[in-house]
């Protein structure tokens, strides 16, 4: 498998994982920021777990939770990336929502706006910069995901081998120079993603 194919596969999987994660992460972040409900602190703790648990432990849990037909497929790669990225997106979005002055939302309601309109025209645009920062971090985390991925998706060239797994594999085989090629490519991809995101959020605000 060529370096380009490994990088392209990893970028596609990370982009898919991040895209699929955004709607539920924003919904959860909004509920955590604006709601007061029973079990909120339990959910907050569960959301933060992948940050503090060893990624291989998370991978082992996922191995028990995902269906057998999904294990060792590209879908397992996406699931592992989503789980490991989720704390970054949820926590950043929650903070961004909390920083939106509720008075704007209240005034929008007095102007006749129902809740979905208030969310999409006031809350979300005002929180967008903070959310974008979390999405970039989540994407970068997905790009570099290793521990959970190797347990739940394995290392099947052309099917589940991601950038981090391929680097580890090459080092294990003593192909240090080939591993460094992938490291360099990974740095360029991560740099480009963060730089583009910074540029776009700066233009928007």
């Amino acid at each position: 498998m060529t370096d380009a194919a490994i990088i392209w596969f990893t970028v596609r999987m990370a982009a898919l994982a991040t895209t699929l994660l955004i709607p539920p992460a924003l919904a959860l972040a909004w509920l955590l920021a604006r709601g007061t409900w029973r079990g909120k602190s339990v959910i907050e703790t569960i959301v933060a777990l992948p940050l503090v648990m060893p990624p291989v432990a998370t991978g082992l849990i996922l191995l028990k939770l995902v269906p057998h037909s999904v294990v060792f497929t590209w879908r397992a790669v996406v699931i592992a990336m989503m789980v490991m990225s989720s704390p970054f997106i949820v926590r950043a979005a929650r903070l961004a929502f909390e920083n939106v002055n509720p008075h704007y939302e209240q005034i929008a309601r007095t102007l006749g706006a129902h809740e979905p309109r208030v969310f999409f025209t006031i809350t979300l645009p005002l929180a967008l910069r903070g959310i974008a920062g979390g999405v970039v971090l989540g994407f970068a985390r997905a790009l570099g995901e290793f521990g959970a991925t190797i347990l739940v998706a394995g290392n099947i060239p052309g099917r589940t081998t991601t950038l981090a797994v391929a680097i580890y594999d090459r080092v294990q085989l003593g192909h240090d120079s080939a591993a460094w090629h992938l490291v360099a490519a990974g740095v360029i991809v991560a740099f480009a993603a963060i730089w583009l995101s910074e540029k776009s959020t700066r233009r928007r605000t």
Binding site: I107, R109, T110, G112
Partner: peptide, 10 residues
């Protein structure tokens, strides 16, 4: 609030 039709200038 959205159904009251009250104009509010805080």
């Amino acid at each position: 609030a959205r159904a009251r039709r009250i104009g509010y200038v805080p």
